[in-house]
Nucleic acid binder design. Structure first.
Lengths: 215, 215
DNA sequence: TAGATTGTTAATCGATTAACAATC
DNA sequence: TAGATTGTTAATCGATTAACAATC
């Protein structure tokens, strides 16, 4: 695996490849060429070959790529099945939905539980996992060396909890708070899902359609 | 407004600008230069000026940009306050969380209600909005000329509902099903939030850190 | 062997950055 | 007026695409 200076664009395409390959595998397909894959995904064959070649040589001339082994390679690159541990910070509707929709254990991660401030739900269970008092968050992260925090708290609490998580040595934050988190120099990785950004891109295109029509 | 061939990268930065400007306005700031804005957002001043200049001349030499009016301009470009109508398709945990977290009406959109297949929740209300039988989805969309469907159904139902929505003339689908929707030639716009893609980008970086360390 | 298809090098295209005249 | 800062043109950088020898 080379993986020296792989561009962001390439990295963000990898999960799409993985999804597509899972799809093809599910359909019982065995092999695919960059040409066919490109047509199915709306990419050029060149780009696909360039992307893969950032990480190694996964194909075979005259044959293409073996779907099953390519899947495994890309999964490996993306860090699946490495047993990374995760916790949920903020056990509201959104957080609960995420835990229930992602089968973390099957996917090769270890989900350890949730944290919340509401006494009503502390001590209960979500999908079988315990809900702890957020007051214990720092100690828990330190003790269990938690890798990933899924942050689904109200925006006003986002930075405070980020600070606690950073102090406790969390490695990554999956951020759903719709704010930019301050993590400083060698703070944790942050990957954000900004719902409103995505929604606004949608309405941008609608607005553009409307404006074009008016002319 | 020129808006001829604006690149995707530019479009995806616009919501970030809007968030930042809202932030600054909230802090009582009145004006900002591309230089300061760049430093705060991690972009070059050049890029910021280029981005804005795709849509018009919003600044003033020697002064910079007026935060309030720039906010309004970008909001306008992004189609806020145009009264676009939206429905929720799939009233599970995730969908409910989205409706409760986005105050659609305040944000300038019109939320019309939710649709589900579960008789238990059909006829109930979410955040005050009615939950209809999904059997009425097509007719409802046609009748109310609904602009946007928020699709939060299980993946196996995604394509069927997409087909119904397209047939009924929906203009855009905000897709949370973690699948690629087939919409054909002049089907609706699709903007997807792929949770798993985002999560895998996170674990990619963790895995890379780990591999680098091992060496 | 002939056909298919890779991995990689070179060419092109587009996006970002730098520079600067215009002007508030 | 002098200083600041824009909008835009030109230069650079990086990403995508094309081409092709290597080879299964």
């Amino acid at each position: 695996m080379k993986r020296s200076n792989v561009s962001n664009n390439v990295i963000r395409r990898l999960p799409r490849y993985l999804r597509k390959l899972d799809d093809l595998a599910g359909k019982g397909e065995e092999r695919i060429s960059s040409d066919k894959l490109g047509r199915q995904m709306g990419l050029t064959p060149s780009q696909i070959r360039q992307d893969f070649s950032c990480f190694g040589e996964f194909g075979q001339q005259g044959y293409g790529y073996n779907i099953d082994s390519l899947r495994k390679e890309i999964g490996q690159i993306l860090g699946t099945y490495r047993g990374y541990s995760a916790i949920l910070v903020g056990a509201g509707k959104l957080g609960t939905a995420l835990v229930q929709n992602f089968d973390f254990i099957i996917e090769g991660y270890t989900f350890l539980g949730a944290f919340d401030i509401d006494p009503e739900i502390i001590g209960t269970r979500i999908d079988g996992f315990p809900v702890y008092d957020v007051a214990q968050l720092g100690d828990f992260v330190r003790e269990h060396k938690v890798d990933i925090a899924i942050l689904t708290v109200p925006r006003h609490a986002a930075q405070t909890l980020t600070d606690i998580l950073r102090e406790a040595g969390i490695r990554a934050i999956w951020n759903f708070t719709n704010t930019e988190l301050e993590v400083g120099e060698d703070g944790p990785l942050v990957e954000s899902i900004h719902f409103s950004d995505s929604f606004l891109v949608l309405t941008y295109h609608l607005a553009q359609e409307d404006d074009r029509e008016k002319q």
